[in-house]
Nucleic acid binder design. Structure first.
Lengths: 215, 215
DNA sequence: CGCAAGGTTTGCACGCTGTGCAAGAATCAC
DNA sequence: GTGATTCTTGCACAGCGTGCAAACCTTGCG
């Protein structure tokens, strides 16, 4: 092993952190794969952990439930994107929604490198209520993040109503985009990823809320 | 017991259906009360069913989980309201959102006769992820309903993008209204119920999306 | 009324989830 | 190298949620 830093000025991710990230990713991948092959209900934590080579007890050190392991994507909005948005120009509904669409699509593109896994997870969510509920809870967590960012950008209080509403509208749009991507063949033709669909949904939203809507 | 029908032209609700509804309501009420007093995690299905006087096994004939028993409100949109909306005038975003706000506030007013229970359930949801997830899942179920209604009203396909987006926006607004009602003293002063707050949130949404927003 | 049909409750058994705890192993900082 | 910190693991255990079959109760009908 060379002693040189992998990347100068990096947070110096130790061996510990690296292994932890990897184990987490493997548990997630194994959960999705096994659930696709045998059905979510048939998969037990014991199977998953055996597949990865850890003890069942360890599984729960990484995820609070089987459901949570399915949707390991979509964590907190990374600081880089958050800053990019918060420091953007314009406090109007238009500008804010446009920029939200941008960073959310980017976030999705980064956080979900493997569309096949997202596709599988979504199909499972359709049939298993508890999985759908977990997905929605993760979306809501992102929504909270967004509300804070919007407040930061517009200079309004972090629990303001406008920020809350806009965050809700944005996440509803994201969910719609993901849903539509999932419903239309999705992974069959590699043409479009979920991120592109989300962008399209934000365009549709724009049209829907445009001046024409005021009749 | 008189043999006269309670209400002429009613579906003649039998003894069976009546008892079933009552048991369901009692299980819900007991769950909320026990969770408020002892904390959700400390309450077991055994306690709840003992409280109501049924077997633990029977509890699961009514609710699929402890969490689901907390939010027995907010079922499907009743046909009367659904028809009122679907047959309303105007296909524009404005008109649709306004009418959605109306029927959803009405629905909330009918479906949640006891604000104290809603208040308690929401506080519990703040601290227990699985309860929050269940709440969100129920909101999403309503959202699906709404999308269908919107499609019916505007003559678009039931899985159209515009209907989906509008339904998402509407439910985000409802959630925001409920949240704000819950956060501001809520039940302390009887002045405002959740339904009024939801109406206010729809007003805020209107302002937010109004012509001014287009800058 | 008497009786058959269908729905509801209940007990029983069972596998699985999810958590607290304490001992041991691996990594880190110095 | 050495101690401190973090992570893994086994163990035990309460509780969840479900399938099944027997008992029970409503309902409708002759």
């Amino acid at each position: 092993m060379t002693v040189s830093d992998p990347q100068p000025s990096a947070p110096a991710e130790g061996l510990r952190a690296r292994r932890r990230r990897q184990t987490r990713a493997e548990l997630h991948a194994a959960t999705v794969r096994l659930a696709r092959e045998h059905g979510f209900a048939q998969v037990t934590v014991e199977m998953i952990s055996k597949e990865v080579g850890v003890s069942p007890r360890t599984f729960f050190n990484y995820f609070p439930s089987k459901e949570a392991a399915l949707f390991a994507l979509f964590g907190t909005v990374p600081p880089a994107l958050a800053d990019r948005f918060a420091e953007g120009e314009g406090s109007g509904t238009d500008a804010v929604l446009r920029d939200l669409g941008d960073i959310l699509a980017d976030h999705l593109q980064e956080a979900a490198p493997e569309p096949q896994e997202l596709e599988d997870s979504l199909r499972i969510a359709e049939g298993v209520p508890s999985v759908l509920a977990t997905f929605l809870a993760q979306c809501e967590a992102v929504e909270r993040d967004l509300a804070g960012l919007i407040a930061r950008r517009t200079g309004t209080p972090p629990d303001g109503e406008a920020a809350e509403l806009l965050a809700g509208v944005a996440m509803a749009t994201v969910r719609s985009g993901i849903k539509r991507w999932h419903q239309s063949g999705a992974h069959a033709d590699e043409g479009e990823g979920p991120a592109e669909r989300v962008r399209e949904s934000f365009d549709s939203l724009r049209t829907l809320l445009g001046p024409a809507a005021v009749q």
